[in-house]
Computed example of a mutant assay.
Amino acid sequence: MTTMAGTFDETRLRRGIEQRDADMLISLYNDDAEVEIVDHTNSPSNPLILRGHAEIRQTLEDVCARDMTHSLDRCVMYDDLAAYTESCRYPDGTCVLCNSMLDLENGRISRQLMVQAWDE
């Protein structure tokens, strides 16, 4: 998959998500990347904003450490944009669905908007 300024590695994204590998996932982000998260705790008017590798890594390590399965269901790319859907399932059957929109620079994530929902 080619972007205007480089190549985004969808295979690394899939492996990182499905193998719960925080190191592989953080390698896909620019050092100064920003992640905006909207969910039942963080409303659209007050989203959680993660800035830079340290904050993003902390969240990725937390998510990857959880006893759950992750699946990259769809990934589409166009120029310097990508979007994907991720499905997760805890051992008790609780499901999480996450949609992400990515801005890419030089084949790496510069900005991510993530909207996620849980079974409740």
Score class of each variant (00 low, 15 high):
Met1Asp: 10
Met1Pro: 08
Thr3Ala: 13
Met4Gly: 15
Met4Ser: 12
Thr7His: 11
Thr7Ala: 07
Phe8Tyr: 09
Arg12Ala: 15
Leu13Lys: 10
Arg14Glu: 14
Arg15Glu: 14
Arg15Ala: 15
Arg15Lys: 14
Gly16Gln: 06
Gly16Ala: 02
Ile17Met: 09
Gln19Lys: 07
Gln19His: 03
Arg20Asp: 00
Asp21Asn: 07
Asp21Glu: 00
Ala22Arg: 04
Asp23Thr: 04
Met24Ser: 09
Met24Ile: 07
Met24Ala: 15
Leu25Val: 06
Leu25Thr: 06
Ile26Met: 03
Ile26Gly: 00
Ser27Pro: 07
Tyr29Pro: 00
Tyr29Ala: 04
Asn30Lys: 08
Asp31Thr: 05
Asp31Gln: 10
Asp31Gly: 10
Asp31Cys: 05
Glu34Val: 12
Val35Ile: 08
Glu36Phe: 03
Glu36Cys: 10
Ile37Asn: 10
Asp39Arg: 01
Asp39Lys: 02
Thr41Leu: 15
Thr41His: 12
Pro47Asp: 01
Pro47Gln: 00
Pro47Trp: 01
Leu48Thr: 02
Leu50Ser: 07
Arg51Phe: 05
Gly52Arg: 01
Gly52Trp: 00
His53Gln: 02
Ala54Cys: 01
Glu55Asn: 11
Glu55Ala: 13
Ile56Cys: 07
Arg57Trp: 03
Arg57His: 04
Gln58Cys: 02
Leu60Pro: 04
Leu60Gly: 02
Asp62Gly: 12
Ala65Glu: 08
Met68Asn: 10
Met68Ile: 05
Thr69Pro: 04
His70Gly: 13
Asp73Ile: 09
Val76Pro: 09
Tyr78Ser: 14
Asp79Phe: 09
Asp80Cys: 08
Asp80Ser: 13
Leu81Phe: 11
Leu81Asn: 14
Ala82Trp: 09
Ala83Thr: 14
Ala83Gly: 15
Tyr84Ile: 04
Thr85Gly: 08
Thr85Met: 12
Glu86Thr: 13
Ser87Ile: 04
Ser87Trp: 10
Arg89Cys: 11
Arg89Gln: 15
Arg89Ser: 11
Arg89Leu: 11
Tyr90Lys: 09
Tyr90His: 12
Tyr90Gly: 05
Tyr90Met: 13
Pro91Ile: 05
Gly93Lys: 06
Gly93Gln: 00
Cys95Trp: 02
Cys95His: 13
Cys95Ala: 15
Val96Arg: 06
Val96Ile: 10
Leu97Gly: 14
Asn99Pro: 03
Asn99Glu: 07
Leu102Thr: 01
Asp103Leu: 12
Asp103Glu: 13
Glu105Met: 12
Glu105Trp: 03
Ile109Phe: 02
Ile109Ala: 05
Ser110Ala: 11
Gln112Lys: 11
Leu113Thr: 09
Gln116Ser: 15
Ala117Lys: 07
Ala117Arg: 05
Trp118Thr: 08
Trp118Lys: 13
Asp119Arg: 08
Asp119Asn: 14
Glu120Gly: 10
